[in-house]
Simulated assay, not measured.
Amino acid sequence: MKSIPISLTCLLALAGCQVVPDRLPQAEPAPAASCYFPVTHERALEASVEVLTEWGFTLNSTDTTLGLISASRERALHGYYDPYDDAYRYGRGMRLFGGLGIGRGGSGVGFGVGGIGFGGGVGQQPLEVERVSLLVDDAHIRISRDIRRFDHWGDLRESYSASNNDFCQRFQTSFAQTIPATGRPL
């Protein structure tokens, strides 16, 4: 009979200790109460699109049968400090090589360099992408908003739910001011 190595025994023991999450993922922080508000206007979808385009958002997709609007806008983050940039002591904003490896195998020695590149993302800016989704039905509008920040390499560094009271109340105010221009109320 073959013996089982101790490392394999420990691995099998730890595999039995996996924990299943007790809840499904959800937006944190939770959306503000002002992000769900009643509307009594027959052209709420058109007014919502008008407000978003006035604010500089670009429509990504719409589904008028579902009442769904998805829009986004981008802005450059000049001077954005990436808290993870110096995590491995390579220096802030500087990658010397994409990868560097030295190895020895059998009777030879090897040296490899992958993804050669100098500099800190020349010509690229850190970027913030703000996405907004609206669900417009016969009686309510629900707003969902998130913000993602990318460093000068295009790597995602921050992402969070931004369905806060300030944004949603500003949307409600602009929406109410747009209503008279888009048609008559119900």
Results as ranks from 00 to 15, higher is better:
Met1Asp: 10
Ile6Asn: 05
Ser7Cys: 03
Ser7Pro: 00
Leu8His: 04
Thr9Val: 05
Cys10Leu: 15
Leu12Lys: 02
Ala13Gly: 11
Leu14Lys: 00
Ala15Arg: 03
Ala15Glu: 07
Gly16Pro: 02
Cys17Asp: 01
Cys17Trp: 13
Cys17Pro: 01
Gln18Cys: 05
Val19Trp: 06
Leu24Gln: 11
Leu24Glu: 12
Leu24Phe: 13
Ala27Gly: 02
Pro29Asn: 06
Ala33Glu: 15
Ala33Phe: 05
Ser34Pro: 02
Cys35Ile: 03
Pro38Arg: 02
Thr40Gly: 12
His41Met: 03
Arg43Glu: 01
Ala44Gly: 09
Leu45Arg: 02
Leu45Pro: 00
Ser48Trp: 01
Ser48Asn: 03
Glu50Asn: 11
Leu52Lys: 08
Trp55Glu: 12
Trp55Ile: 01
Gly56Glu: 01
Phe57Arg: 00
Leu59Arg: 06
Leu66Thr: 09
Leu66Gln: 12
Leu66Asp: 06
Leu68Ala: 11
Ser70Lys: 12
Ser70His: 11
Arg73Trp: 06
Arg75Phe: 07
Ala76Pro: 03
His78Ala: 10
His78Gln: 13
Tyr81Pro: 00
Asp82Tyr: 08
Ala87Met: 09
Tyr90Thr: 12
Gly93Phe: 09
Leu96Gly: 12
Phe97Trp: 09
Gly98Ser: 13
Gly99Gln: 13
Leu100Ile: 12
Ile102Trp: 15
Gly103Phe: 12
Gly103Asn: 11
Gly105Met: 10
Gly106Tyr: 10
Gly108Met: 10
Gly110Leu: 05
Gly110Gln: 10
Gly112His: 09
Val113Cys: 08
Gly120Thr: 08
Val122Gly: 09
Gln124Pro: 00
Gln125Val: 08
Pro126Ile: 03
Leu127Gln: 14
Glu128Trp: 05
Leu135Phe: 15
Asp138Asn: 08
His140Tyr: 14
His140Thr: 14
His140Gly: 00
His140Met: 04
Asp146Arg: 13
Ile147Pro: 01
Arg148His: 11
Asp155Cys: 04
Leu156Pro: 05
Arg157Asp: 06
Tyr160Glu: 11
Ala162Trp: 13
Asn164Trp: 08
Asn164Met: 04
Cys168Leu: 06
Cys168Gly: 05
Arg170Lys: 14
Phe171Ala: 04
Phe171Thr: 05
Gln172Gly: 07
Ser174Pro: 01
Ile179Leu: 15
Pro180His: 11
Ala181Trp: 06
Gly183Cys: 12
Gly183Phe: 08
Arg184Thr: 15
